[in-house]
Design a protein around this nucleic acid. Structure first.
Lengths: 130, 130
DNA sequence: CTGAATCCACCGGGATACTG
DNA sequence: CAGTATCCCGGTGGATTCAG
């Protein structure tokens, strides 16, 4: 990977951070994952993504649309019908996140254990065993 | 991946979010990537990771240590010498992020283009072509 | 050298109310 | 149905200072 292997981090031109920011916000990956199954409309996403406010769903969708991750298609009917779906790039993003999601499901327990152990150590006065 | 394929997002038990949060913060992935080349001490990380404040480096290192991603080894000498290095789990995390980093380097230009196009459209009054 | 502590500005994001 | 507008709170993270 581009961020390692030289002992130096990449020069200022390393912009991987921007992509991280792209998916790091609270809801983007949920939306992308959800759209992985096909086009969805606003209310379907709202219902399907637990806990998202309609404001944040709007903001998230706008951001992903702007970045070319998904498209927004308006059907001029009554009542309004708007469909969101992944672009080709959005689909590749979804695939690129798969290993990380996979990793998470495999290591969440280990992380929990590590945290518990760490917190136990931190909250108890030190002994010579430390 | 566990978040897609059923047309339903995972139940509340889906905790992939926690891992995203793990790596989503501003500096964690930089630290992990940097330690991918081997153990480093505080000042080396501080110098190597452009823009990180000493506070955020400390906070980030503590968090990653707590989660079992890296270890902190203290050498009782003068001046103090403290070494940080990835755990086995940290190494697998680094590998899991590789596709995302790879994706980013391949699509940053496309994203820029999409943003530019989107912003141009948004800032200009609509025509019948829209 | 490797932090901890404190102060503070910024903004992500939730609640709520209103609109085409 | 699919938003927009406004208010406001809490957390993130930078700057600075102090300490072992």
């Amino acid at each position: 990977m581009s961020m390692s292997g030289t002992g130096q981090h990449d020069p200022p031109g390393c912009r991987a951070r921007e992509v991280l920011d792209l998916v790091a916000d609270k809801w983007s990956l949920y939306v992308v994952a959800f759209l992985g199954d096909g086009p969805r409309r606003f209310t379907e996403l709202k219902r399907g993504i637990d806990g998202v406010s309609q404001r944040m769903l709007t903001v998230t969708l706008r951001g992903l649309e702007r970045d070319g991750i998904l498209t927004r298609t308006v059907y001029e009917v009554m009542p309004p019908h708007i469909s969101y779906q992944l672009t080709a790039m959005g689909t590749t993003l979804l695939q690129a996140t798969a290993p990380l999601i996979e990793w998470s499901s495999r290591h969440l327990d280990s992380i929990d254990a590590a945290r518990t152990a760490y917190d136990a150590r931190a909250s108890r006065p030190r002994t010579i065993a430390d």
